[in-house]
Amino acid sequence: MVLLGFGVGWSWQGANGEAALDRANTAHANTLGEIARAGQRQLQKQQELLVAERERMQALDQKYYGELQDEKADNERLRGMYAGADAERRELRIQVRIARADAVVSETTGGSGLGDVAALELSPEAGSAVWDIRAGMIEDQAKLRYFQQLERERQGAD
């Protein structure tokens, strides 16, 4: 009888043990599934943020590239007007302030003092170079505005 009790107890314990093991395996599988789903949600959220960031960057690029192209076209228009002008209009004159020590004083111009204004006339080659310098300045200013906006948006996103 003891053996019969022992056998029944053993079977009952085995059945309980298997049921407990099955419950543990099910709980473990459920936990792993939940972890996988959470990881998938997080990955999808990161991908959505990446796509949104790329779209924002593309819009920013298009905006500033378009502005740069407009400014370059305007510079080329002015360069064309300059090149097509008659000789008198093609001469670029710049008013400059000169210090007394730098002034070249002749009998026709008279004396000059600090802050006097004189006209400086550029050669045709130098006048033409002004448009190249202006084009470089336009590009530099456009790039600076672009990078400043990029940094403002980056700081706003942090």
Rank of each mutant, 00 (worst) to 15 (best):
R56I: 00
Q42L: 01
T31A: 13
A142S: 15
Q40N: 04
V117P: 09
A99V: 12
D22Y: 10
R23H: 15
G66R: 00
E48Y: 08
L49T: 09
A24R: 10
E67S: 01
M81V: 01
R79F: 11
V2I: 08
M81F: 08
A99H: 11
E121Y: 14
E121L: 13
I138S: 02
S106Y: 08
D116Q: 10
R154W: 12
E153L: 14
I35M: 11
R90A: 05
M1R: 04
L43N: 04
I94T: 03
D86E: 06
L78K: 04
D61K: 01
R93N: 13
R93P: 09
Y146V: 05
K45E: 08
E91Y: 14
L4T: 09
V104R: 13
M57E: 08
D116C: 05
A73V: 07
E18M: 11
G127L: 03
E76W: 09
R89E: 02
E88K: 12
E71D: 14
A27T: 07
E107G: 10
N30D: 14
I94K: 04
R23L: 15
R41P: 00
A83E: 10
R152Y: 07
Y65I: 03
Q69T: 05
L150Q: 14
N16F: 01
A83P: 03
L32K: 15
R100C: 05
G9N: 05
R56H: 10
R56M: 07
V96Y: 06
E53W: 11
R93L: 12
Q13K: 04
Q44L: 02
D102N: 14
L68H: 00
E67M: 00
L68N: 00
R152K: 07
D140R: 10
V105D: 10
Y82R: 12
R145N: 08
L120M: 14
L49W: 03
A20S: 06
F147H: 14
D61W: 00
E91R: 13
G111W: 15
L92P: 04
A87W: 11
M57I: 04
S106H: 08
R97H: 11
R79Q: 13
G111V: 14
S112W: 10
R152H: 05
Q148C: 06
V130K: 11
E91P: 02
G156I: 03
A24N: 10
A19S: 06
A135Q: 13
L78R: 07
S106L: 12
R90S: 04
A126M: 13
D132F: 00
E151L: 15
